[in-house]
């Protein structure tokens, strides 16, 4: 079996002063070993919350639906992620078999500890390495991600490194425990384009070398096109389209995915007008009934759009879309 992680019926709500807020609504997907999945969506789409659920990392006011199930397949057998409670059990999804890279590398390193101390600490937590072994491996990993003079850099603090370097150090730290699944949450968003290109290249090399699965969360379809094998598109907590990267980008089926691609300024055609997706993303407190996108959709096909949530339909073996256009046309 080649499946690395299997997410079924994930519904996630947060208890707030204004009532229960739904962040993720009945999302199911799987990721194979060595596969790079792009998880695309705008702010409030639930992409980061979904990723954090894989590490059971959401805040204590999170409420998971009873039928939600996340299974991680490790060498020691399957792990039911949502049933993990004790810190010792959670280690496997928090830095053990699953690692995460965050968007803001400055905020993810402790400012008053050297990079090395943080890298060594987590290695000792996840393995029975001695301090010296952990240090050697950390220097080696920093070197692997292209940090020159790694033996010296390891004793520096996060503020002494530039943005690109910090993100490299973050990647080195996340990979040093040899995770099976790497979750990268907007890892290049805070970087300049030239540095972004370097980091993307580095991540691709590392996937090949370590053969791990990656969930690459981003709002940038260009970055997805350059990195992912498959794409999942989320909107207001729903998974609305999924498929191989070429198909989703070249022949998007969902009106939202189509709108997202049309809204991108294209360098090839400077005369093309910019076409925004009309309206604003609704507040999660006022989730539209039926299809969550119908308030902004230009292709509403009937009353069903505002009353019935569309089921995911298979366009072909790999490409799926949740939209009434296709259910009523009988595709």
């Amino acid at each position: 079996m080649n499946t690395l992680i299997d997410v079924q019926n994930l519904t996630l709500q947060f208890r707030t002063d204004e009532g229960l807020v739904t962040a993720v609504d009945n999302v199911s997907f799987t990721l194979d070993k060595g596969e790079v999945m792009g998880l695309v969506g705008e702010s409030g789409s639930g992409k980061s919350v979904t990723a954090k659920a894989l590490m059971h990392l959401n805040a204590s006011n999170a409420v998971y639906s009873p039928d939600a199930k996340i299974t991680l397949f490790t060498e020691d057998g399957p792990v039911d992620v949502l049933s993990l409670r004790k810190p010792a059990e959670l280690k496997v999804v928090r830095g053990g078999a699953v690692s995460m890279i965050f968007q803001e590398p400055m905020a993810s390193f402790a400012p008053a500890m050297t990079i090395g101390k943080q890298m060594i600490e987590q290695l000792q937590l996840h393995s029975d390495m001695s301090k010296a072994q952990a240090r050697n491996l950390s220097v080696e990993m920093l070197d692997r991600v292209g940090i020159s003079d790694a033996g010296k850099r390891i004793d520096q603090y996060a503020f002494e490194l530039s943005g690109g370097m910090r993100q490299r150090a973050m990647i080195a730290m996340a990979l040093s425990t040899k995770p099976k699944l790497l979750i990268a949450d907007e890892p290049t968003t805070a970087l300049d384009v030239t540095i972004q290109a370097q980091v993307i290249d580095l991540m691709k090399d590392l996937v090949d070398e370590f053969h791990m699965g990656i969930i690459f969360i981003t709002h940038d379809l260009g970055v997805v096109a350059q990195t992912a094998d498959r794409v999942n598109v989320m909107y207001l907590g729903r998974l609305i389209e999924e498929g191989p990267v070429r198909e989703v980008i070249r022949t998007p089926k969902h009106p939202y995915t189509q709108g997202l691609i049309a809204a991108l300024p294209k360098l090839e055609d400077l005369d093309a007008p910019l076409t925004p997706v009309p309206g604003d993303i609704p507040s999660p407190l006022e989730r539209p009934p039926g299809c969550v996108f119908h308030t902004r959709c230009g292709q509403v096909v009937g009353a069903a759009c505002s009353s019935v949530a569309p089921e995911e339909l298979a366009i072909d073996d790999t490409h799926k879309v949740a939209c009434h256009i296709y259910s009523e046309a009988g595709v």
Partner: peptide, 25 residues
């Protein structure tokens, strides 16, 4: 030129075609 080339292309078949700038500002 390097800035232009570093913009991630929407075409998945353009992978690895960008001319890369080494180092940082």
């Amino acid at each position: 030129r390097a800035l232009f080339s570093a913009i991630p292309s929407l075409d998945p078949d353009d992978r690895g075609k960008a001319q890369k700038l080494t180092g940082e500002i």
